[in-house]
């Protein structure tokens, strides 16, 4: 019997399967969308890096067959900033969850957006801390039950697209793991966009969120994603907050041009140096390319 190989095996660490995600979890779909997006983009994958923090979504960095860095809780973005600044030729993708990026890492999120560092941040939002067993987080809707809001959540959640747009992100989109084609397109746009781009992916957490809130199973959530969502490209980010029982607004909310961190840095320094300002790392990489 010959071993069957998945067409995306070259982009996955098949030797690490099975993955840790629960049946019905949407993170696997989100990862598959990322891998498909990369496959079609035909960018140099040897120079594509995935950085994550801690949590279920953060495990993606270890399942994709790319340079992957599974860093500490909340610190994926500053680690990615260091990678990108030290080697601007890398394509740096941060893939992590809502708790990691918006709670413990929230300050880094807004500062990276402000600087417009050329990063793509992919945030799987399942409204809950999944890995630790279903605690409320910065995206948990009002009134939702979690192990740390046993009487219902009374802290208002972040509207993530509004948060990053206000901080300076040049590309902001939200999709769900039901909308895979649109999600793949959005990931491709985000990865090729110069500057800080942000894609929020709504995803079911059957174990930590749906069950406790009597919202059914993953399929029920997919049905909600299908029937209760409205695609409004260009919707003002301030109007796309998520509330239980209300329409989920999806789409590409922001896509604009703004100088990146590197562009501003090089321009600013050019005024002080006779030679055009280029960091040494990329000079060396370019030299190598010429040779080979």
């Amino acid at each position: 019997m010959s071993e069957e190989r998945h067409p995306l095996d070259h982009l996955l660490r098949a030797d690490r399967l099975p993955h840790i995600w629960c049946p019905g979890c949407g993170i696997g779909i989100a990862m598959r969308c990322l891998v498909l997006a990369l496959e079609e983009l035909r960018i140099p994958l040897d120079r594509t890096v995935v950085v994550s923090g801690i949590g279920c979504s953060a495990r993606v960095a270890g399942y994709v067959r790319l340079d992957g860095f599974h860093t500490t809780h909340g610190r994926a973005i500053p680690f990615a900033t260091g990678l990108k600044l030290a080697n601007p030729d890398l394509t740096v993708i941060v893939f992590s969850g809502d708790g990691d990026l918006a709670a413990i890492g929230g300050n880094h999120l807004i500062h990276a957006a402000r600087r417009n560092v050329d990063l793509t941040v992919i945030c799987v939002n399942n409204f809950i801390y999944g890995m630790t067993g279903g605690q409320s987080g910065p995206t948990t809707p009002l009134a939702a039950r979690s192990t740390t809001t046993p009487y219902g959540n009374f802290e208002p959640p972040f509207n993530l697209p509004a948060l990053v747009a206000a901080s300076g992100a040049v590309y902001v989109a939200r999709w769900t793991v039901f909308h895979v084609r649109r999600l793949i397109t959005a990931l491709q746009e985000a990865i090729t966009k110069r500057g800080f781009s942000f894609v929020e992916i709504l995803s079911p957490c059957p174990t930590g969120y749906l069950r406790r809130n009597k919202l059914g199973d993953a399929l029920d959530m997919m049905r909600v994603f299908k029937t209760q969502s409205e695609i409004r490209h260009g919707a003002p980010p301030a109007e796309v907050g998520i509330e239980l029982g209300k329409k989920l607004i999806l789409g590409k909310f922001v896509d604009l041009e703004r100088p990146t961190y590197h562009e501003r840095m090089r321009k600013q320094l050019a005024a002080f140096f006779i030679e055009p300002y280029v960091e040494k790392v990329s000079e060396e990489v370019e030299a190598e390319e010429v040779e080979s």
Partner: peptide, 10 residues
């Protein structure tokens, strides 16, 4: 964090 990232960029 950025320092660790930069180190892994070589």
């Amino acid at each position: 964090s950025a320092v660790l990232g930069a180190s892994w960029a070589g």
